[in-house]
Design a protein around this nucleic acid. Structure first.
Lengths: 116, 116
DNA sequence: TAAACTGTAAACTATCAGTTGACATATGTA
DNA sequence: TACATATGTCAACTGATAGTTTACAGTTTA
């Protein structure tokens, strides 16, 4: 596994790639520039909602950012709670699967969705 | 779907079933009785850690309580982050599966685990 | 040279999980 | 009868944390 970059560093990277100032980015995601600055110096942590907005306006992968920020997408939480007695135990039993095995499961789900 | 009972009500139910006082339960889960009282009157919300402890000492299903408390088990979060780019999108695509379909997936995972 | 931008520091606000200590009302027991 | 001990609850606090305000120093541009 690649060394885990921090959310702070990744945020700065994405922002500078877009040639955005700290206040400009803040304005775009409804937060003060100061807060963006704090996030980039890991003096503060983002809410999952903020991560979502950041990913959108920075054209980044939401899941990557959520992961770096140690957050779970509320939409994913909803799926977990949609079957509270099966999904959590399913996930716990799946903790050692490889990416290839996950892809196999993904295909199965795609098929299930098609046959509905 | 059965009407969603509140975490507060379920907690009181479980506690009285066990003939436990508010302080006694608090002591057992390292929290003041006052906090238990607040939880039962939904004046406060429990941390996922506390929900875990409560489930254990009340002999209740952790996942049911976590669901009622609108929390996600940290262990489940770890699984999600173990494959940050595949698991979240897998879950989003699986949001409409029935319990039977989830069980089918569960069996598949059981097989994958055996063949390792 | 002045306006308008850059990032940053310190001190604040609001929310929320959890605590403290005091209270009134049982319930047991001597 | 009275004293101790348990019941749940109230108000006011603590500590952490996501986010804001105001003000500041350095750089760019006009």
């Amino acid at each position: 596994m690649a060394r885990k970059i921090t959310f702070a560093d990744r945020l700065k990277e994405l922002r500078t790639e877009k040639n955005m100032g700290i206040r400009e980015l803040g304005r775009a995601v409804d937060v003060t520039g100061m807060h963006i600055s704090n996030l980039e110096k890991h003096k503060s942590a983002p809410s999952s909602d903020l991560v979502r907005k950041l990913a959108e306006i920075l054209d980044a992968n939401v899941d990557e950012l959520l992961y770096l920020a140690d957050q779970v997408d509320p939409e994913v939480v909803d799926v977990i709670h949609s079957n509270p007695l099966t999904v959590p135990s399913f996930l716990r039993s799946a903790k050692n699967l490889t990416p290839e095995q996950w892809e196999k499961l993904q295909k199965q789900v795609d098929k299930m969705n098609k046959d509905s």
